[in-house]
């Protein structure tokens, strides 16, 4: 690691101030991506501003919606009886991120702010059309992810929580990378306000809704409706672990499995 100044902010305002006052400041949430990046000397911030000391950024509120504080670790979401009751697919997704130790430290705010193409949460943010609350505004889930590691967040903007509408039903199916355990493909299928929404992560540069799959499922959530449906592979990622064609295939398979979960 390069040298940097570590700060633990006690308020959003202080965090913003510390970062804007630094030559090159970054926010630290759970650190599951940032710290490995720092260890490899792939980033050289002058200042690291830890958000863990800020009151109110952690915790889960379940009412008409499910609101997950930005600093809430994945394990808390996975293990929350309230989340399991309201959006079981969200708890299920959170329980499959990384490994147990990652889930104990990694946070939803850090995960979505990073917009790693292979992260799991973005599938839910997109499929459930969550609202991303920040210290400045609210951002609609489907407008949040712009590209590889690029979000709608402005410099210095801090995610404070993510609010998920409670869908009539939803399911998440993941095909993990056998080495890293990130998603090669993750698909969340949700029925929300009478419409079917399909959020896909892992496959493209960032999470997206699949128009093809949504169209096929518009008539009803049945696996049979997906028979013969394919997803174009033109924009999909291709790497050592999966070609674009294979990813496209897996998107359809995972979608079918998510739908099958709902039927089952």
């Amino acid at each position: 690691m390069y040298r940097f100044n570590y700060h633990r902010a006690s308020s959003l305002a202080q965090a913003a101030e510390l970062r804007s006052g630094a030559d090159d400041g970054v926010f630290l949430a759970g650190g599951m991506t940032l710290i490995p990046t720092l260890k490899q000397r792939l980033a050289a911030p002058t200042d690291v501003v830890d958000l863990a000391g800020i009151e109110g950024l952690s915790g889960i509120t379940v009412g008409d919606t499910v609101t997950v504080g930005a600093m809430t670790p994945h394990a808390d979401v996975a293990g929350s009886a309230a989340v399991q009751g309201a959006i079981p697919a969200l708890a299920d997704l959170a329980g499959r991120i990384g490994d147990a130790h990652v889930r104990n430290r990694g946070t939803i705010g850090g995960s979505i702010a990073n917009s790693d193409p292979a992260a799991d949460y973005p599938a839910a943010v997109v499929a459930l059309n969550a609202t991303v609350h920040t210290d400045r505004r609210d951002i609609a889930g489907e407008d949040f992810f712009l590209d590889l590691f690029e979000t709608a967040l402005e410099p210095g903007e801090i995610v404070t929580s993510v609010e998920f509408p409670v869908p009539a039903r939803a399911a998440y199916a993941k095909f993990p990378n056998p080495a890293s355990r990130y998603a090669i493909v993750g698909v969340m299928v949700a029925e929300l306000d009478g419409a079917v929404r399909v959020g896909v992560t892992g496959a493209g540069p960032c999470a997206f809704r699949s128009a093809e799959l949504e169209a096929a499922l518009a008539g009803g959530l049945s696996a049979a409706a997906l028979d013969g449906v394919s997803v174009p592979d033109g924009n999909l990622n291709s790497d050592l672990h999966a070609s674009a064609a294979y990813r496209a295939h897996l998107v359809a398979v995972m979608a079918r499995r998510a739908v099958a979960q709902l039927a089952g």
Binding site: Y6, R8, G31, V48, D50, A52, A100, R105
Partner: peptide, 19 residues
């Protein structure tokens, strides 16, 4: 490098001392 921090298993190589 797994240790327990406040009762949870964490990778101590991915926690800053400050955290």
């Amino acid at each position: 490098c797994v240790v327990h921090m406040d009762g949870r298993a964490v990778k101590s190589c991915t926690v800053l001392a400050g955290q």
